[in-house]
Amino acid sequence: MTEKTLEKTTARDSKALVTTEGRTTIADTVVAKIAGIAAREVNGVHALGGTASRAVGALRERIPGSTTNHGQGISVEVGEKQAAVDVQLVAEYGVGIADLAAGIRRNVIGSIERMTGLEVTEVNIEVQDVHVPSEDKDEPQERRVQ
Protein backbone atom coordinates (compact mmCIF):
# COMPACT_ATOMS: atom_id res chain seq x y z
CA MET A 1 0.00 0.00 0.00
CA THR A 2 1.13 3.51 -0.69
CA GLU A 3 1.42 6.12 2.02
CA LYS A 4 -1.69 7.92 0.72
CA THR A 5 -3.74 4.70 0.84
CA LEU A 6 -2.66 4.09 4.43
CA GLU A 7 -3.73 7.63 5.36
CA LYS A 8 -7.22 7.05 3.98
CA THR A 9 -7.75 3.77 5.80
CA THR A 10 -6.89 4.81 9.34
CA ALA A 11 -9.85 5.05 11.73
CA ARG A 12 -8.82 8.49 12.95
CA ASP A 13 -8.77 9.92 9.42
CA SER A 14 -12.11 11.60 8.77
CA LYS A 15 -11.23 12.34 5.14
CA ALA A 16 -13.17 9.18 4.29
CA LEU A 17 -16.33 11.04 5.37
CA VAL A 18 -15.79 13.82 2.85
CA THR A 19 -14.77 12.68 -0.62
CA THR A 20 -15.02 13.99 -4.14
CA GLU A 21 -18.05 11.70 -4.57
CA GLY A 22 -19.95 13.21 -1.64
CA ARG A 23 -20.17 13.83 2.10
CA THR A 24 -21.18 11.40 4.83
CA THR A 25 -22.75 12.84 7.98
CA ILE A 26 -23.30 10.84 11.15
CA ALA A 27 -26.16 11.77 13.48
CA ASP A 28 -25.55 12.35 17.19
CA THR A 29 -27.94 9.50 18.00
CA VAL A 30 -25.81 7.05 16.03
CA VAL A 31 -22.65 8.00 17.93
CA ALA A 32 -24.55 7.92 21.25
CA LYS A 33 -25.87 4.42 20.51
CA ILE A 34 -22.38 3.15 19.60
CA ALA A 35 -20.95 4.69 22.78
CA GLY A 36 -23.74 3.24 24.93
CA ILE A 37 -23.29 -0.28 23.61
CA ALA A 38 -19.49 -0.03 23.95
CA ALA A 39 -19.73 1.25 27.54
CA ARG A 40 -22.13 -1.53 28.56
CA GLU A 41 -19.67 -4.14 27.26
CA VAL A 42 -17.13 -3.20 29.97
CA ASN A 43 -17.20 -5.38 33.09
CA GLY A 44 -18.08 -3.33 36.15
CA VAL A 45 -20.74 -1.15 34.51
CA HIS A 46 -24.04 -1.89 36.22
CA ALA A 47 -26.19 0.63 34.34
CA LEU A 48 -25.93 3.81 32.29
CA GLY A 49 -27.66 7.05 33.14
CA GLY A 50 -28.73 8.88 36.25
CA THR A 51 -31.60 7.88 38.50
CA ALA A 52 -34.26 9.71 36.48
CA SER A 53 -33.15 8.41 33.07
CA ARG A 54 -32.92 4.84 34.40
CA ALA A 55 -36.46 5.12 35.82
CA VAL A 56 -37.82 6.42 32.51
CA GLY A 57 -35.91 3.70 30.67
CA ALA A 58 -37.41 1.00 32.92
CA LEU A 59 -40.91 2.32 32.25
CA ARG A 60 -40.25 2.55 28.53
CA GLU A 61 -39.06 -1.08 28.35
CA ARG A 62 -42.36 -2.25 29.89
CA ILE A 63 -44.37 -0.84 26.99
CA PRO A 64 -45.13 -3.63 24.51
CA GLY A 65 -43.21 -3.20 21.27
CA SER A 66 -40.73 -0.70 22.69
CA THR A 67 -36.99 -1.06 22.30
CA THR A 68 -34.06 -0.50 24.63
CA ASN A 69 -32.56 2.98 24.50
CA HIS A 70 -28.88 2.17 23.92
CA GLY A 71 -28.00 5.86 24.15
CA GLN A 72 -29.35 6.22 27.71
CA GLY A 73 -26.82 7.97 29.94
CA ILE A 74 -24.78 9.12 26.94
CA SER A 75 -24.54 12.62 25.53
CA VAL A 76 -22.41 13.48 22.52
CA GLU A 77 -21.26 16.39 20.43
CA VAL A 78 -20.52 15.42 16.84
CA GLY A 79 -18.74 17.64 14.37
CA GLU A 80 -17.58 16.98 10.83
CA LYS A 81 -14.36 15.28 11.94
CA GLN A 82 -14.54 14.83 15.70
CA ALA A 83 -16.82 13.68 18.49
CA ALA A 84 -16.86 14.20 22.26
CA VAL A 85 -18.72 11.86 24.60
CA ASP A 86 -20.11 12.19 28.16
CA VAL A 87 -21.07 9.01 30.01
CA GLN A 88 -23.16 8.80 33.20
CA LEU A 89 -23.11 5.42 34.91
CA VAL A 90 -23.61 3.27 37.96
CA ALA A 91 -20.58 1.14 38.80
CA GLU A 92 -20.61 -2.29 40.42
CA TYR A 93 -19.40 -2.28 44.03
CA GLY A 94 -15.80 -3.45 44.37
CA VAL A 95 -14.65 -2.37 40.92
CA GLY A 96 -11.73 0.06 40.74
CA ILE A 97 -13.33 3.20 39.35
CA ALA A 98 -10.13 4.47 37.71
CA ASP A 99 -9.67 1.09 35.95
CA LEU A 100 -13.34 1.06 34.98
CA ALA A 101 -13.10 4.55 33.50
CA ALA A 102 -9.97 3.61 31.53
CA GLY A 103 -11.70 0.51 30.14
CA ILE A 104 -14.78 2.48 29.15
CA ARG A 105 -12.69 5.16 27.43
CA ARG A 106 -10.69 2.54 25.53
CA ASN A 107 -13.80 0.66 24.37
CA VAL A 108 -15.88 3.75 23.50
CA ILE A 109 -13.04 5.45 21.59
CA GLY A 110 -12.16 2.27 19.71
CA SER A 111 -15.76 1.52 18.74
CA ILE A 112 -16.63 5.04 17.61
CA GLU A 113 -13.42 5.57 15.65
CA ARG A 114 -13.62 2.14 14.00
CA MET A 115 -17.28 2.42 13.04
CA THR A 116 -17.54 6.10 12.09
CA GLY A 117 -14.07 7.36 11.20
CA LEU A 118 -14.58 10.28 13.60
CA GLU A 119 -11.76 11.23 15.95
CA VAL A 120 -12.92 11.06 19.57
CA THR A 121 -11.43 14.05 21.37
CA GLU A 122 -12.62 13.15 24.87
CA VAL A 123 -14.73 10.73 26.87
CA ASN A 124 -15.87 12.23 30.17
CA ILE A 125 -17.20 9.77 32.73
CA GLU A 126 -19.46 10.61 35.66
CA VAL A 127 -19.98 7.81 38.18
CA GLN A 128 -23.29 8.66 39.83
CA ASP A 129 -23.73 5.67 42.09
CA VAL A 130 -22.33 2.32 43.16
CA HIS A 131 -24.54 -0.74 42.84
CA VAL A 132 -24.48 -3.11 45.81
CA PRO A 133 -25.77 -6.60 44.90
CA SER A 134 -27.70 -6.92 48.17
CA GLU A 135 -29.91 -4.01 47.03
CA ASP A 136 -31.42 -6.25 44.34
CA LYS A 137 -32.64 -8.99 46.63
CA ASP A 138 -36.34 -8.91 47.32
CA GLU A 139 -36.14 -10.12 50.87
CA PRO A 140 -39.49 -10.19 52.59
CA GLN A 141 -39.60 -7.50 55.20
CA GLU A 142 -40.74 -8.39 58.65
CA ARG A 143 -44.28 -7.19 59.15
CA ARG A 144 -44.79 -4.77 61.98
CA VAL A 145 -48.49 -5.54 62.37
CA GLN A 146 -50.56 -8.70 61.96
Rank of each mutant, 00 (worst) to 15 (best):
V127P: 00
K4R: 14
V120F: 05
D99E: 15
S53C: 07
A102Q: 12
S14R: 04
V95T: 15
I63N: 08
P64A: 13
I125R: 04
I63T: 12
V108Y: 11
S66E: 13
V56N: 02
H131V: 00
M1F: 09
H131R: 10
A16S: 13
V90P: 10
A84P: 00
G36S: 14
R144Q: 08
V56Q: 08
E77V: 08
A39W: 01
V90S: 13
I125Q: 05
V18P: 00
E80G: 06
V18F: 01
V76Q: 07
E139Q: 15
A101L: 05
A58N: 10
G96A: 13
R105V: 01
E41F: 07
G57Q: 12
V132T: 01
G49I: 03
N124L: 03
E41V: 04
A16Y: 00
G110A: 15
K33F: 01
E142T: 08
E80V: 14
I37D: 05
E92R: 11
N124Q: 03
A84G: 02
G96F: 06
E92H: 03
S53E: 13
S111K: 15
V120L: 07
N107W: 06
D28Y: 04
H46C: 05
A55E: 10
E142F: 05
E80I: 10
S66N: 15
K8T: 08
Q146M: 06
Q146K: 07
S134Y: 06
P133R: 09
D99W: 10
V145M: 00
V130P: 01
M1H: 04
S75K: 15
R114C: 07
N124Y: 00
E61L: 15
G49N: 05
E77P: 00
P140F: 06
R114Q: 13
V76T: 09
L6S: 02
I104T: 09
A83R: 03
A47I: 05
T67L: 14
G96M: 02
G49A: 13
N43S: 14
T51D: 07
G117F: 11
L118K: 08
A27M: 05
V108P: 00
R62T: 15
K137Y: 10
M115P: 00
I109A: 03
K137G: 00
T116C: 11
G71H: 02
G103M: 09
V95D: 05
L89K: 12
